[in-house]
Design a protein around this nucleic acid. Structure first.
Lengths: 148, 148
DNA sequence: TTGATTTAGTGCGACATCGTACTATTTAAT
DNA sequence: ATTAAATAGTACGATGTCGCACTAAATCAA
């Protein structure tokens, strides 16, 4: 493997890592103290997709270990953003449901974040972002499969 | 802001976050136990750019708080991969220098990782990666400036 | 049916990250 | 020259992340 190819991939993953870090911090400064990107992401996911999913399904959707999802959900429970109900199909399992407070949290968060996205879109228009996503999805899918 | 635009950016940052996570895990499984992506990245940076830089310069290069860089460097010191020397230009400061052990660590790590990159490049060729980097750099630069 | 294996979720411990506060030194202001 | 402000680095504490081990329930095998 030539070092030029290697460096291309290194540069790519380095930019990815820094963007992940900066965007996360940028989002979290807009959230009420004690709430993090995973909190917002999970609530957002429950709205965009559907609630009533199991913790394990959420862990898989976000590619995190299930212990991490347990921790994230415990924070959402403390804030009253979700509630757990037994899974009628599986006694080991639970289902995660949004509360009205949780929906409101998402509404408020989006109101706080929208101006930032709007500002970013002045420099990097939506179309440019949309053009990037398919390649990123391809890479993400590859990495997901590659981890055995 | 219409929700379509918002969702485009959300999807983008979501993919970014997952790729960062998966690629980090993939790399770290190739490193000796106890060593992390930041350890490798810093050593790699010291070789690609130059050693003798200050901890603060490294913190800025990786967009992490200086306390985080202190912690990363302490790990590199423990492993004997770098050594610290006083900064002749500034008595408050230090400079970070690679050791032979550190260079060897980087060599070995690259040998371990190269096959993975090679496999990835079969699915996502170098050219495709290189085409993505400028846009990512633009976004990273924007986010960096935007954090006041 | 019974026992073995797999799976969902959690408690716990290890460690990475990062904000706050502190020391030592440098730079700026007068 | 003296003092105030800014800067480099670190110690410490809080918290997020995740591997390991465990319990309870489901699935599979005979």
């Amino acid at each position: 493997m030539d070092s030029e190819t290697r460096n291309a991939f290194f540069r790519f993953f380095n930019e990815i890592g820094i963007i992940a870090q900066l965007s996360r911090t940028a989002l979290e400064t807009r959230l009420p103290k004690g709430l993090t990107l995973p909190h917002f992401s999970v609530v957002n996911h429950l709205i965009r997709v559907k609630d009533g999913q199991t913790p394990l399904a959420l862990a898989r959707a976000f590619q995190v270990p299930k212990t991490t999802m347990t921790h994230t959900l415990s924070g959402l429970l403390e804030h009253g953003f979700v509630e757990m109900r037994p899974n009628p199909d599986d006694g080991r399992s639970k289902t995660v449901w949004l509360t009205e407070t949780g929906r409101q949290f998402r509404e408020d968060a989006i109101k706080s974040i929208d101006p930032d996205i709007d500002a970013l879109s002045q420099t990097v228009p939506k179309e440019k972002i949309e053009a990037l996503v398919p390649a990123l999805t391809e890479i993400r899918t590859y990495l997901d499969k590659a981890r055995d």
